[in-house]
Design a protein around this nucleic acid. Structure first.
Lengths: 260, 260
DNA sequence: CCCGGATGAAGTGTCGACACTTCAAGCAGA
DNA sequence: TCTGCTTGAAGTGTCGACACTTCATCCGGG
């Protein structure tokens, strides 16, 4: 999409100039796009230009090619995407609601800064909400649901065995998504999607910390067992522990969100 | 604002045509506007036209002058507000993110339908989140914070004594807001604001059920006591009970969200 | 050498226009 | 009477333009 929409852009040395060239592991790339699309696409078969721009810019931010504080003026963006400023503004508004962009009236939008304080809040909330999710999963999960989770678990083990952090990361995201789906609670799901997307970059950073995969994998196994045993309290506690371990890893990594 | 922006509107018999005439209790009106503004205004001293439209339309929806399914086409809205369609579309997008409006590509936006199922989800989530809030309040509330809450409690008692449901309702909203503020957690606050706004109309319906004020007042008193005693578990349980009682009242009222 | 106002370039918010899509009414045929 | 096609009116998504604001740079007075 990005490739199709903003290929030449010879005129503008904006932050998005070399988007298409940056290639990644295809699997991770696809998963990533899917994850981000769910929040930004309006499920339509023909996404509006605005949707595509929101998706593309969000991806840039999450993958770190756009840094906090970077200028996101609508003129340059419009040039990059060969569109007018109207859909760009629309995209920026959506990104603002999701917390990716800071818009001050009459001033240029900027990529939002994510302070450690906010990250803590984000993870706290995620911990609480996933704790609710886990309790609900225990109550309502069918055998088929559990089998899906077992599949993810096996994939986690395989990725961990290969030491493939990237794959582990994305399967982990899927695991969490499946849990959320099992609750069949659209409201909860939407809030989690929003928080999860915002935290996506951090989550990767977190799992990439040395020695994180082993305990995470172990806890997932125990969580799955708790689901099978219909042990709500244990499941809830394990989930909280998993999320909070994620935050702890970020803190340990020395990440602060400040400029160097 | 509405009054200033859309006074004559002789041409369009749109749903917003008689907005300014509808007068309410001034206090309630002011409180309501404040509540809604917090989510929709971008804190600026000079709100953009889009902000004003979002605020006005959200108010119409919450106060029930716009009903689920009502047409919100941007042409009529633009006429109503004497603006072009650009700020209208912006406002509609914001309202969509908040769940007030359903936008399908290439089709006319409509006022979102709120099914009983979603209301249940909404209240469930609010119950869980306010439970977190209560636990946090127990941990971090200063004496000044508690005093503010006591003030609200006294106002609740006064309103209940007068049998003034409207006033009770708005003080109740303030009480919840104060609790949320005490946590000093902006992320949590934002999510709660969003959910709370969506539920605003229902909350009023809920408290207006006969025999609701007494138990609610009683539980608030006990909640305050739990805060003073720093009893996290009790406070959390009471809060959950309060919110869930709200949902129960809605169910009992026979409200379904369906058209008659 | 520093401060503060002037000045031009750049960007924002809003507008009206236009091509394309959706919707509803009317009409023809069974 | 009902069905399905045609057709015009109405609405959406996007565009380029314009007035006003913000920002950076330059310049002259201290």
């Amino acid at each position: 999409m990005v490739t199709a929409k903003a290929p030449p852009t010879p005129g503008g040395p904006g932050p998005l100039r070399d988007v298409p060239a940056t290639a990644r592991l295809p699997v991770a790339e696809a998963a990533r796009r899917l994850e981000i699309t769910r929040t930004f696409g309006r499920g339509t078969s023909v996404p509006s230009i605005a949707d595509e721009i929101a998706l593309a810019v969000a991806t840039e931010i999450i993958e770190g090619r756009l840094s906090p504080g970077d200028d996101l003026n609508s003129v340059d963006l419009a040039r990059s995407f060969h569109s007018s400023r109207t859909p760009v503004r629309e995209a920026l508004l959506v990104l603002e609601r999701e917390g990716f962009v800071e818009i001050t009236a009459r001033r240029r939008p900027r990529v939002a800064r994510l302070l450690l304080r906010e990250v803590r809040e984000l993870y706290n909330l995620r911990a609480e909400l996933y704790s609710v999710v886990s309790r609900t999963v225990v109550q309502v999960a069918t055998e088929a649901d559990l089998e899906t989770l077992r599949g993810h678990q096996r994939a986690l083990e395989a990725a961990a065995a290969d030491g493939d952090v990237d794959r582990y990361f994305w399967v982990n995201v899927q695991f969490r998504n499946t849990e959320a789906d099992i609750t069949r609670d659209a409201t909860l799901r939407r809030v989690l999607d929003s928080l999860g997307l915002r935290a996506l970059q951090l989550r990767h950073l977190s799992l990439a910390q040395p020695g994180r995969l082993e305990p995470s994998l172990h806890d997932h196994a125990r969580l799955l067992k708790a689901y099978e045993d219909r042990d709500a309290e244990l499941a809830s506690a394990l989930t909280q522990s998993l999320v909070r371990a994620g935050y702890a890893a970020i803190e340990r990594s020395g990440w602060t969100g400040e400029e160097p």
